[in-house]
């Protein structure tokens, strides 16, 4: 009990408010992004872009370049280049192409780690992130990126809906599909690159996929999906952090498990409630 009380007093420490705010913003951003990525059936995109950012960070570190601008640029360009891959138009399935690109980036990442002379702790931290050591300015950066994503989602809402439903219909009927898709991918690159140091390349995947998949289980209508996915992402990150704090468990693992739990609850709701669509 004394331990709990001791931790409860820690919980109101401003330091943890920053961590919770960072978790909520990162989770909400990934959840919102996931609502689109899951519908586009490209969950691998998150892993690919985050590992591109990771390789970018490591090589920026090796060459003594800016550790934020470089990765953001590299992952944004890499993400936007995916706009050219269209299902049915090339012989390669988009997910297979992403798998190949992902393994390439993973190879480059580990090559960079191997070439690093100094301590590798900071670099390896990119795999799981280091949300507990988040700084105030990082929260501002991810907050601005999240606002940009929310603004994009609202401003291009009507085009995004057609894009998710059918890229063929969007393209054939004069929707600015390629432009909006490339913008979306660019924003993906930025969001994932700025969130990477906090949530890490591995955790980002679950925060993109699980909250969105949960929302698609129980929601009716696009707006409900987007709002629920954003909320589930934030809940997974904050809930996972709080659980790890009280149970004294690794934060990253708890956030991943919390997001999986959200999906399991949503799937159970759908099964047991048998809610009519």
């Amino acid at each position: 009990m004394s331990v709990l009380l001791g931790q409860a007093s820690l919980a109101i420490d401003p330091f943890f408010y920053t961590v919770i705010a960072a978790g909520a913003i990162a989770g909400a951003s990934c959840g919102l992004l996931g609502a689109y990525i899951v519908a586009l059936r490209l969950p691998f995109i998150g892993v690919f872009i985050s590992h591109t950012a990771m390789a970018g960070t490591i090589f920026a570190y090796l060459f003594g370049l800016n550790p934020t601008v470089g990765p953001v640029l590299v992952s944004t360009i890499a993400a936007m280049s995916l706009a050219g891959i269209r299902p049915g138009r090339s012989r390669l399935d988009p997910n297979v192409a992403l798998g190949i690109l992902f393994s390439l980036m993973l190879g480059l990442t580990f090559l960079g780690i191997g070439l690093t002379q100094d301590s590798r702790t900071e670099i390896l931290g990119l795999l799981w992130g280091s949300i507990l050591f988040v700084r105030g300015e990082s929260v501002v950066v991810i907050g601005v990126a999240a606002l940009a994503l929310a603004a994009f989602a609202m401003l291009f809402n009507k085009e995004l809906k057609v894009l998710l439903f059918s890229r063929t219909i969007a393209s054939a009927t004069g929707v600015h599909e390629t432009f909006v898709y490339a913008l979306f991918l660019g924003l993906c690159g930025i969001i994932l690159a700025v969130n990477l140091p906090l949530v890490g390349g591995l955790m980002i995947f679950s925060l993109i996929t699980n909250p969105a998949a949960a929302a698609y289980q129980i929601c009716r209508g696009h707006r409900a999906v987007v709002l629920a996915s954003t909320l589930f992402g934030a809940l997974s990150a904050v809930g996972g952090f709080i659980a790890s704090y009280y149970l004294n468990l690794p934060t990253g693992a708890c956030i991943v498990l919390a997001s999986a739990l959200v999906f399991a609850l949503a799937a159970a709701c759908r099964t047991f409630a048998r809610r009519a669509d």
Partner: peptide, 21 residues
Amino acid sequence: TEYNAELPFTVREVVAMGRTS
């Protein structure tokens, strides 16, 4: 095979997509 029938778009949302362009 060219549209995503599994997404929870409502009928009104799908028909409204016709006005997008």
